[in-house]
Nucleic acid binder design. Structure first.
Lengths: 344, 344
DNA sequence: TTGAAAGCGCTAACAG
DNA sequence: CTGTTAGCGCTTTCAA
C-alpha cells in the first residue's frame, strides 16, 4: 500500500499547454498522430514523455463508447469438471490474443444460477465491449442475456441446442471432437482390435456426445454393451471400466472420452489382470498434461490445441468488434491429432 | 454477435425526467437514497425499474476516480511451476471476495520481462483501484512499479528480500510454510524415524526456503547429505530421490517440499525396492488435488488453505482501498494442517 | 430535502 | 492542418 489518492496525473490539457498546441491536436497525436505535421507531433510526443502523461481511460470510454475490455465468463462448476489445465491453457490463449490487441481481460466466475443477475447487470453496465463464454449447457441463461444486452459474444465449445429458426447462430470455437474420436477408433482398428469399447462422457456435454458420435461413425454396428458412460473423472472411468469388463470380459480395446477416465480405466484393467496394451489397447482424449504421459504405460491419446482455441475465440470476438458481426464466421472447428504412446 | 452499437441505454437524465425529479435527486437515489424523502425514492426506483436503467460506469469513474476493479497480476512462468490447481484455487478465492464487494477482477498475465512495460502503463492508466500480485522473485520489477504508480498492492507469498530501511513493508499473505514443514517432520519423528531426508524446492522461492527452514527447526543437526534440492516438479523429485538413495541408502523417511516432488520420489523409492511407508515414510506438502490422494499409497501431506489465502489477499486490498493503507496489516500468515494418509 | 450548475478528461464535428 | 466548441453521463458543491 502506498499513496491513497494517487497524485492527480497530468491531463491532455497539460500536455497541450506544454507543447503549445490545442487539446485537439494533442489528442490526435496521442491517438496515432494522423494528419498532424511532424514538428508538432514531435513537440507533443516530447510533452507526453516529459510529463509522463497517460490517457484517462474513463474519459476516453465515456466518449468513444469503447472500453477496450472483454469479459471472460466461466461457470464455476466447469472449472472442476473440465479439470484445471484445460481452463488455464484456454485462458492463456485468450490472454495472449487480447494483449496483442491492447484489450483487457475481465474474469467473471459464475458461482451458481443466482449469479447470472450479476453477470447480466455487468454486461448491461457497459464495462466491456464483448464477452467470451464457455461450455454452455442446454438451459444456460447466458445466450439470452447476451442477446438481450446486445453484447457480442463468442462461445467456447459447441452449444448443446440447435439454432432457433430465424435466429443468428451463435459463433463458437470447438475442437473437432468427432473427428478426433474417429482417429482414435481407427487407430485401434488398425491395431487389429475387434472388440472395441467406449467410455463416453456425460450426455449433456457436446464434447462427450460428439466423441461418442465419432466412435459410432467408425463402428456403426457396435454392440451397445460395449459403451458405458462416465463423468469425465478418473473415478467414474474406473467404475465404467469395471462394468464393461463384467459384461464383456472379451473386450480387447477401449477408447475413453478423456484421459482422466482412461487413467481410471487403466487402473481397473490392471487390477483385473489385463496387460495394456497387449491384452487391451487403450486410447484417451485431451493429451492432458500431467496425466497422459505419466500413467504406466503412458497413454496414446488425441490432442487438441486448447491454447489455440482460446486464441481463436478472442480473435473472432475482436474481429466482430471491429468489423461487425458479419465478419465473424459462425463457428470454427480446430483440428485434433493422435499422439501415439505406449498404451495402444 | 448481435447488435454492433448497443442500443443507447437510458441515462440518469431520462430516469429523472420519468420520475419528475432532478438529475441530482435521481443520482442520490441510485446511490443509496440517503437524504431523499421516501415518496421520491420510490418514484425514482420505479423509473429505474421501468426504464431498465443501468449506470454508465465510465461516467461514474470519471468523476469519482474509482474504477471498482482490481488487477490480478500473474507471471506466466509461475502458472506452470506452481501447477495449475494452485493458481485456479487462489483465483477462485480472490474472485469470491471481490464479487462480494462488487469489485471486478482484471487478469493480467505477464509473459516475460518485456511485459512489465505494459503492466506499468496499465496500472498508471487508472484502469484499476488496486492490484494483487504473486510469488515475487528477488529482482521482480513489480514492487517498484506499484510504488511508482502509487498503486495499492497486496502480494501472495512472502517476498524474497528484506524491507529496505525506511520503506513501508509490502503487505502479503502467505501460508505458514515453516510451521507446516515442522508439522511434517515432527510427524515423521513421532513415527520413530531417525534418518529423515528432505527434498527441498528451488532456493529462490521463499515457500521452498521456508519449508527447508522448518525442517532444520526440528532437525537442527541434520546431516547435509540428507538434503537435496528439486524444482517442485515430479521429475525433479524423482531425480533428487535417486541421489538421496545413492548417498544414504539407509534413510527411513523423506519430507518432500511439495506433493509433485513426493510423487516422483515415491516412484523412485518403489523402483529401488523400498516399501512405503514400511521401509521409508513419505510426507509431501500442498495436499494437491489429483496428486496427493491418487498416488499409491496416498500421500500424507501438509494442507494449506489456498482459496482462503486468495480471499484474504482480496480482503486486505479492499480494506486498504476503503480505509487507507494504515488499516492493512503488514502481512498475514495462514495456518497449515497435517493430512494423514497412508504414506507416513 | 431538492435543484441548478459546474466540471471530471477526453474525442469529434465543424470552421477556419 | 489546426483550433474552437460541444458534449459523453455522472457526481457534487452550493443555494434555495
Amino acid at each position: 500500500m502506498t499513496v491513497q489518492h494517487p497524485a492527480s496525473r497530468p491531463t491532455l490539457e497539460a500536455v497541450a499547454a506544454y507543447a503549445g498546441v490545442s487539446r485537439a491536436t494533442a489528442s490526435r497525436v496521442v491517438n496515432g498522430g494522423a494528419g498532424v505535421r511532424p514538428p508538432l507531433v514531435d513537440k507533443v510526443r516530447r510533452a507526453v514523455e516529459e510529463l509522463g502523461y497517460v490517457p484517462n481511460h474513463a474519459a476516453r470510454t465515456l466518449v468513444t463508447r469503447r472500453t477496450g475490455a472483454v469479459a471472460v465468463i466461466i461457470p464455476e462448476p466447469e472449472i472442476r469438471i473440465f479439470s484445471d489445465p484445460f481452463f488455464s491453457q484456454q485462458i492463456r490463449g485468450i490472454s495472449r490474443e487480447l494483449t496483442a490487441h491492447d484489450t483487457q481481460l475481465v474474469l467473471l466466475l459464475v458461482e451458481g444460477p443466482g449469479d447470472y443477475d450479476r453477470i447480466a447487470r455487468y454486461l448491461a453496465g457497459g464495462h466491456v465491449d464483448g464477452a467470451l463464454a464457455f461450455s454452455l449447457h442446454t438451459d444456460d441463461p447466458l445466450p439470452a442475456i447476451a442477446r438481450r444486452t446486445g453484447m457480442p459474444t463468442v462461445y467456447g465449445g459447441r452449444p448443446g441446442w440447435p439454432t432457433a429458426p430465424g435466429e443468428r447462430p451463435v459463433p463458437y470455437v470447438d475442437a473437432d471432437n468427432r473427428g478426433g474420436a474417429r482417429q482414435a477408433v481407427r487407430h485401434l482398428l488398425a491395431l487389429g482390435r475387434t472388440r472395441i469399447a467406449h467410455i463416453a462422457g456425460p450426455r449433456d456435454q457436446t464434447s462427450a456426445t460428439d466423441r461418442l458420435d465419432g466412435f459410432h461413425d467408425v463402428l456403426p454396428g457396435a454392440d451397445p454393451e460395449l459403451v458405458e458412460e462416465g463423468a469425465f473423472t478418473a473415478e467414474s472411468g474406473a467404475r465404467a471400466m469395471a462394468r464393461l469388463l463384467e459384461r464383456r470380459p472379451d473386450l480387447d480395446a477401449v477408447f475413453a472420452a478423456n484421459d482422466l477416465m482412461a487413467s481410471g480405466a487403466l487402473r481397473v484393467l490392471r487390477q483385473h489382470g489385463r496387460r495394456v496394451p497387449e491384452d487391451v489397447a487403450l486410447v484417451g482424449f485431451d493429451d492432458m498434461r500431467g496425466v497422459a504421459e505419466s500413467t504406466d504405460p503412458p497413454l496414446t491419446t488425441v490432442r487438441q490445441d486448447i491454447e489455440g482455441m482460446g486464441r481463436l475465440m478472442a480473435r473472432l470476438l475482436l474481429r466482430g468488434l471491429s468489423e461487425g458481426p458479419a465478419a465473424v464466421p459462425t463457428s470454427v472447428v480446430t483440428e485434433t491429432a493422435l499422439v501415439r504412446r505406449a498404451s495402444a
